[in-house]
Write a protein that binds this DNA or RNA. Structure first.
Lengths: 127, 127
DNA sequence: CCTACTGTATATATGCAATATATACAGAAA
DNA sequence: TTTCTGTATATATTGCATATATACAGTAGG
């Protein structure tokens, strides 16, 4: 599995792993029942510690996206497309709330905010 | 000065202080030349350590929002309204970029994302 | 000048998160 | 049996956040 991990950004490695695996699952690149690379395998491939991968996987397990089977590995859990979408929406809602409120508190108008969102979405390319 | 600090949230105290003071400055509640409470005074009032306040203020100083005068205190720096607005916009842009990209990677559409922003802005009340 | 304030600098300590290495146990499969 | 898998645990390091404490230098008022 291809993950792009970097030491340059502030984002902890654990977070990078779980974020990237989550995106693959929610975007449908990994399907229900698919086997994730073993924690030792991914740690070796990505040159990180086993516990770093383990923690990342446990985080995803807590979110209900994957489940582990001792001796067999971690597997993508069964989730309907609508549940996946709902999950992504909830995450975004929670993530955006504080910064949007802060922006309003700093004097930006709703129109300002929407403009910035548009700008970012336009920069992001295709739908 | 009234700040609402809480130990309950994940947000570090330093961050809470600098965020709330920044909002007061950018929203115009604190004007150029206004004197901020002394680090010892705010620490006493908010029952936090002096160094916690100092770090928060230093962060704002690095952003150019305030400046310190030894023996006199910290003062709000001179900033045009347009510079303030630009600052708030830049902050929001930087804050939103990663979560928006992640949401797209997770399979949300631009329309989904805009809907969530609308929802949050509607919940936030008046303009 | 003294006192009480101000910021600046520094030291030490604690707790937590992230990350690392290492070891051991138990389950699964060839 | 061997080699893989996850689970559990221990120890160590680093950095950040936060705390307490001390000292120095600048400022202002009595």
């Amino acid at each position: 599995m291809i993950l792009n991990l970097t030491d340059i950004s502030d984002e902890p490695l654990q977070s990078q792993i779980s974020r990237q695996v989550r995106a693959k699952i929610l975007a449908g690149e990994l399907g229900a029942g698919d086997n994730l690379p073993s924690i030792r395998g991914l740690a070796r491939d990505q040159r990180v510690s086993v516990i770093t991968v383990q923690r990342a996987y446990e985080y995803l397990e807590r979110e209900g996206l994957i489940h582990s089977r001792r001796g067999k590995g971690f597997f993508v859990s069964e989730l309907s497309d609508s549940a996946k979408k709902e999950m992504a929406k909830t995450r975004l809602l929670e993530t955006l709330q504080a910064p949007l409120l802060a922006a309003l508190a700093e004097g930006l108008s709703k129109a300002d905010i929407q403009q910035i969102v548009q700008l970012l979405l336009a920069q992001a390319g295709d739908n």
